[in-house]
Design a protein around this nucleic acid. Structure first.
Lengths: 210, 210
DNA sequence: GGCCTATTTTAATCAACATTAAAATCCATC
DNA sequence: GATGGATTTTAATGTTGATTAAAATAGGCC
């Protein structure tokens, strides 16, 4: 499924970051978080590189020391978001208990990443305008994530902890609810991250539970 | 809450469309649907007016006979989406039965609009880059819609048809799931609109039901 | 102090669209 | 088949913001 071009893209990026020191990594990560916040708050077309740079006390041109292009900046934001999701999924899968328990564990971990200190996570609303290789990569990860979640649901149904339902649809519904969270949740807002975590998992427990 | 500038914007738009005939209205509506499809599939920044125009067998310049700017095109797409939501909400509120019944009725109507013949509905991911007046208008409608939905949930809790829960959170979760649907649902795809409607409402019934 | 690398800035450049103005075409009606 | 409004095209124009190249600065290390 993966084209030669994609692999090339991937390795290019690895090279790009490979030799840089830890200072670099730190700033690069900060860039990604700031950019994600901008994209979520001001929209993709609404945020210029200058906007992002200003928040980092930098010139727009300076960003090109960290990313090759705006497109790549978006891509890396999405990649970061996908990575956080994947990590949460791995933890959920590794958790003990019934299918329901593990599904909820995953959700809780993901919510923690979304609302917690890991900083703002980019909503993936501009996937289509990524260049082919990057788009394929993100879509692939995204697809895998969905499949993993559906698998958890299926296991839950099998072991009787989750009520029988259309796995695909249910997965999509919950994923949608998750993905939409950055739209309405603001750290430091009226609702705390802890509350969201508790209430959201509670919601899913009821939605899924047998 | 509404500024003078906003009102001005609104009336300007009314004037713009007021005198035109029914042919015009028809084509204008088609434009909005095609544009919504483009924005959803190719992203906002990924769709040029030329793209939209091509699908209508028109030149990009011709679109300016129907809209004043790209920004306004987006705004009208969002407005159309909001209107469909509002209509569904009105029908749901007017339906009989318990709070749960009415909430589900609203959802069903909204799903029908989203997946049915009314054509593709724009995902509102670029609200921030609307100009102030338009942004305020859309946000206001959106907020109202959420409030209405939360009210339905509250009524359901009051009459015992919906299990006690945090109304705001639950509303946000379900709205998120709804708003995300255009991301994965493709008319003519593997899953029919009817199936989505049935399964999604079923999901919400379980999530909400007492 | 001098050197080397990492980081950032200044000052252009450049391209992609959005947008506009004027002209052309289409179409119903007289 | 001529007239007038509605609709669309052709051909520029403009502006924004991404991108680049070369120069400047900062800081660790000898």
């Amino acid at each position: 499924m993966t084209h030669r071009a994609d692999l090339q893209d991937m390795s290019e990026i690895k090279q790009w970051h490979a030799d840089k020191g830890p200072q670099y990594r730190l700033k690069h990560d900060r860039l990604l978080r700031v950019a994600a916040a901008c994209f979520n708050q001001k929209g993709y077309s609404g945020t210029s590189l200058k906007d992002v740079a200003r928040q980092l006390d930098l010139t727009d041109a300076a960003l090109y020391y960290y990313v090759r292009s705006k497109e790549e900046l978006v891509y890396q934001c999405y990649r970061r978001a996908a990575d956080l999701g994947t990590r949460a999924m791995a933890r959920g899968q590794a958790a003990g208990g019934s299918g329901l328990d593990r599904a909820l564990s995953y959700l809780d971990h993901h919510l923690e990443a979304l609302c917690g200190e890991e900083g703002p996570v980019a909503i993936m609303s501009e996937i289509p305008s990524l260049k082919p290789g990057h788009k394929a990569d993100i879509l692939e990860r995204s697809r895998q994530h969905s499949l993993d979640f559906e698998a958890l649901i299926a296991e839950g149904i099998a072991d009787g902890s989750i009520a029988p339902c259309d796995v695909r649809m249910t997965g999509n519904a919950i994923m949608g609810a998750i993905n939409w969270i950055p739209k309405w949740f603001r750290p430091g807002g009226p609702v705390s991250a802890t509350q969201v975590r508790a209430q959201f998992t509670e919601f899913c427990r009821r939605a899924l539970g047998a």
